[in-house]
Design a protein around this nucleic acid. Sequence first.
DNA 1: CGGCAAACCTGCGAGC
DNA 2: TGCTCGCAGGTTTGCC
Length: 280
Amino acid sequence: MPELPEVETVRRGLEPVLAGRRLRRIEIRRPDLRRPITPGMAARLEGCRVLAVRRRAKYLLIDVDSGQSIILHLGMSGRIGIWPKAPPPLERHDHMEVETEDGCIIRLRDPRRFGMLALAETAALGSHPLLAGLGPEPLDPAFDAAGLAARLDGRRTSIKAALLDQTVIAGLGNIYVCESLFRAGLSPRRAACSVRGRRAVRLLEAIREVLAEAIAAGGSSLRDHRRTDGEIGDFQLRLAVYDREGAPCPGCTCDPVATGGVRRIVQGGRSTFYCATRQR
DNA sequence: CGGCAAACCTGCGAGC
DNA sequence: TGCTCGCAGGTTTGCC
């Protein structure tokens, strides 16, 4: 489910209820996520005060005043729910429940259990195995088109596969790679190393536009993603190509009857959606 | 190192 | 109605 905009949406929901609050109670109901939850995590966190709720790539980072940080990845189907009071009954896939000092209930639900939940020293987060290899944040102003081109240089794989590689650029997933390539007018099959100069400028601009718009819309809710208040995001209504095989591509001059509209191919075992006319 | 497939899980929609 | 199949927003591992 969650790519950068969905995780950022969740972060913005968590921050006001967590930042500055003590964690009164933490219950791990099921420790066997994609990676087993750090043993003893609940006991080490109870009574701690939250200092900050941050995001790195698709990871949420929750710093507490014991010098440790929670690292949370939502996998494919992970969802965070927040109830200021009177939460509904626990459900089958609610794997963790947190209660803050003011009685607010926060739950992690993840049916597929592809998520990850770990505890690590805040000062050493940069070298943590889950985070160490991550590429730059696309929205970081210090990252520019020349930097993107440098990271694509020498890569013979497709630009689609390269953008999905979290060590090249962090936070993009299948939806936003497809949408960014569409906006940039670049074929998903193009060699990654051929994206430099003006093409790299166009691509980074497209990535930033798509991400910013998606964050503003609260992310894309194709099936699992929810804001922390349970409402869906809205960006799926504005997707140009993702999951729109055969549909006419918005703003495109190609004739959908003649071209068949948005095409779907499989790259690296995952669906890619694109417009063969506009994307070169 | 690069690239690809498989594995990890459950749920849902399509098709029969 | 009920079954099977394919597919899903991610990451890691293992094999060529």
